[in-house]
Amino acid sequence: MSPEDLAAGAMLLALVAYAVLAGADFGGGVWDIAARGARRDAQRRAVARALGPVWEANHVWLIFAVVLLFGCFPRAFAALSIALFAPLHLALVGITLRGVAFVFRAYGPQEARALRVYGAVFGGASVVTPVLLGQCLGAVAGGRLRLAGLTVPEGSRGAWLAPFSWLVGAFALASCAYLAAVYLTLETTGPLREDFRRRALASGTVLVALSVVAPWLTRREAPLLGHALLSPRSLPVLCLGGAVALLSGLGLWRRWYRLARASSIAWVALLLAGLGLAMYPSLIVPDLDLHDAAAPAVTLRGVLWTIPPGLALLLPSLGFLFKVFKSNLEVIHEGSNGHL
């Protein structure tokens, strides 16, 4: 394995971590704005309590992935910054509004109007942002974002609006909603847990529907990628992903929630890994190869050598964070709040 392969692998792992952790935080926002029925407020409290202590740490995976991208593949970062100028700016607005609205709602004036406004901004941004980030991923993988040497032709700047990009955007949103609902079944009890189980089944159904359209749409709109996804390198991973996705559905159906959570995490990881393997060795399909975009070896080695000591600090800290806040949760009572 060359250092640039390892760096690309590290970037993929950071994106997987971002997807399964921060993705669920976006999904939490979706279920906040979609809170319905008699237990509407309790649903929102459950979401707020689940996100509160961890969303900022989860969010850092994105920054980490970006740092890996610009440090290890500076040319790719420059090209994507030009080609995805509009959707990335919009996603940044979404990320900003989502984060501050969540915190401002908790700490700001507790008047009905302010709570409604911050709730709407939090939920709305949680819906829009994953779609935009998914569209960016779709543009990178879909083959419509062409490069001419170091420049990005005008025609490539709409790649994020291509049908395949919308498909990935929809997938991203539905996956976030699914992950959040599945996780929340383990952070609630009683009727509230049933609420989130139903929401998980509903968003899971949407995912199944999208998975049915996906092969047809991919072959038509992103033929290069479609072909690569069927390669012996990628297909087994995707099939395994499909199997664990069904397992996660079964877990939900039979109320084996721990199984549902573990297999939904595995599903997202396998899906992204399958996509990454299909794209390899392209960073931007089809014109930018990761070996051509890579920084000099001295940089790659420098970045890679930070990872073992970095993780030696991070993983125990993250483990502590999740152990404190995600194990032995008591039932949410009326009046308990998710913050200080």
Binding site: G71, A78, T299
Partner: peptide
């Protein structure tokens, strides 16, 4: 700037 200096700033 990022294309020029990214490799220096990355680590």
């Amino acid at each position: 700037f990022m294309a020029w200096a990214g490799a220096v700033l990355g680590p």
